[in-house]
Simulated scan of single mutants.
Amino acid sequence: MIQRDPKYFQQPERNIPDRFIEGSEHYCGRMNPFAYVPFSAGPRNCIGQKFALQEEKIMLATLLSRYRVESGDYLGNVNIKAALILKPKSSVNIRFIQRI
């Protein structure tokens, strides 16, 4: 839940990737190093963290260079289930539109 705490992030329920890019209008500035910890933190954090992040960036860059992604649902109506990770309670419809 810390990733959605308004104490650390403005509009925490919105997906604003630019909040991590220095110089963007949504940039959070220097934040508490434990405010965003998708791989845990400290001496026992995930050993595959750097590999997973690189793999994720490559996969997303490849996918987004070939397709435009649109939501078929209004994201404000998506119910969230909090578990080890946050995920929707039911499926979310998305469309992949091939770029020409």
Rank of each mutant, 00 (worst) to 15 (best):
residue 40 S to D: 08
residue 41 A to E: 03
residue 42 G to T: 11
residue 44 R to Q: 11
residue 44 R to Y: 10
residue 44 R to S: 05
residue 46 C to T: 11
residue 46 C to E: 05
residue 46 C to K: 06
residue 46 C to S: 02
residue 47 I to N: 10
residue 47 I to D: 05
residue 47 I to S: 07
residue 47 I to Q: 04
residue 48 G to F: 04
residue 48 G to N: 07
residue 48 G to T: 04
residue 49 Q to P: 00
residue 50 K to G: 10
residue 50 K to H: 14
residue 51 F to I: 12
residue 53 L to E: 15
residue 54 Q to S: 10
residue 54 Q to A: 14
residue 55 E to V: 03
residue 55 E to G: 08
residue 57 K to Y: 05
residue 57 K to E: 11
residue 58 I to K: 00
residue 58 I to A: 11
residue 58 I to M: 11
residue 59 M to V: 04
residue 59 M to N: 02
residue 60 L to C: 08
residue 60 L to Y: 04
residue 61 A to W: 03
residue 62 T to W: 03
residue 62 T to K: 10
residue 63 L to S: 00
residue 63 L to E: 01
residue 64 L to N: 05
residue 64 L to D: 01
residue 65 S to I: 00
residue 66 R to D: 04
residue 67 Y to R: 03
residue 67 Y to E: 07
residue 71 S to Y: 12
residue 71 S to K: 07
residue 71 S to V: 00
residue 71 S to G: 01
residue 72 G to H: 06
residue 72 G to I: 06
residue 73 D to W: 09
residue 74 Y to K: 11
residue 74 Y to H: 12
residue 74 Y to R: 14
residue 74 Y to E: 14
residue 74 Y to L: 08
residue 75 L to Q: 01
residue 75 L to M: 14
residue 76 G to V: 05
residue 76 G to S: 13
residue 77 N to P: 04
residue 77 N to V: 00
residue 77 N to I: 03
residue 78 V to K: 05
residue 78 V to S: 06
residue 79 N to L: 12
residue 79 N to F: 12
residue 79 N to V: 12
